[in-house]
């Protein structure tokens, strides 16, 4: 089962950087991170950082989709947001399984993972300006954020596929390949958001009123 909120109680683990403190019991040691790349000819620390960043992006995206599904007043769009919840939750589950196979904590939030979460959360703050726009535009804002999150998600899947392809044959490579396949789930829906946005904007442009 995917964990959408990582806390100490849900098994959070991390790695300290210059400005962060991770309690000794929750710190993932560098050798463990390095080891995962050794067999595959990859820099393990970097690979783990990227997986964590992708997982954190998927977690925040799933949470945003939950919020958007609750807020949306347009049935068709609400269904899209609900579909996105399932897609991102499955991505989180796939990436957590990848961590399992690489023998890292599934709640590992790397330094890059923290930044990815911050970036996605920042996008999700856009509806805080709901009072500046019409209800119609608020609905579009939810879609705009969903699209921005989806674009990053599609790019994440591409990046992971590229890393897997560059890895030497090894258990790490196999685990990466498996995750790449799992992350393909929902690709059509994510890509379809571009068209959906265009369709919605066109509909707004043609609608009566100011």
């Amino acid at each position: 089962m995917a964990t959408l909120i990582v806390t100490k109680d849900s098994g959070g683990a991390g790695r300290s950087e210059s400005m962060t403190v991770v309690p000794p019991g929750s710190e993932v040691p560098l050798p463990a991170l390095q080891a995962l790349g050794d067999l595959a000819g990859l820099k393990g620390v970097v690979v783990a950082d990227l997986i964590s960043a992708q997982a954190m992006h998927a977690r925040v995206s799933a949470r945003f989709a939950c919020s958007a599904a609750e807020k949306s007043k347009v049935g068709e769009l609400r269904k899209v947001h609900q579909a996105l919840i399932n897609i991102y939750t499955s991505h989180v589950a796939a990436l957590e399984s990848l961590f399992d196979e690489l023998e890292l904590p599934r709640g590992y939030v790397s330094p890059g993972g923290r930044v990815a979460a911050f970036l996605a959360q920042s996008l999700g703050q856009a509806p805080l300006l709901a009072g500046s726009v019409t209800p119609e535009w608020t609905e579009l804002t939810l879609l705009e954020v969903a699209l921005a999150l989806a674009e990053r998600s599609l790019a994440d899947a591409l990046a992971l596929a590229a890393i897997a392809a560059s890895a030497q044959t090894s258990s790490t490579r196999s685990a990466l390949d498996k995750a790449v396949t799992a992350l393909a789930a929902g690709k059509a829906t994510l890509e379809g958001l571009r068209e959906l946005r265009a369709h919605c904007l066109a509909a707004v442009a043609k609608s009566k009123g100011t």
């Binding site: 806390t7 100490k8 210059s18 400005m19 309690p23 929750s26």
Partner: peptide, 13 residues
């Protein structure tokens, strides 16, 4: 100073 990390911090901290 350095800061705690929300994903690993003890609630008491």
């Amino acid at each position: 100073r350095r800061h705690f990390d929300s994903h690993t911090v003890d609630p008491l901290s």
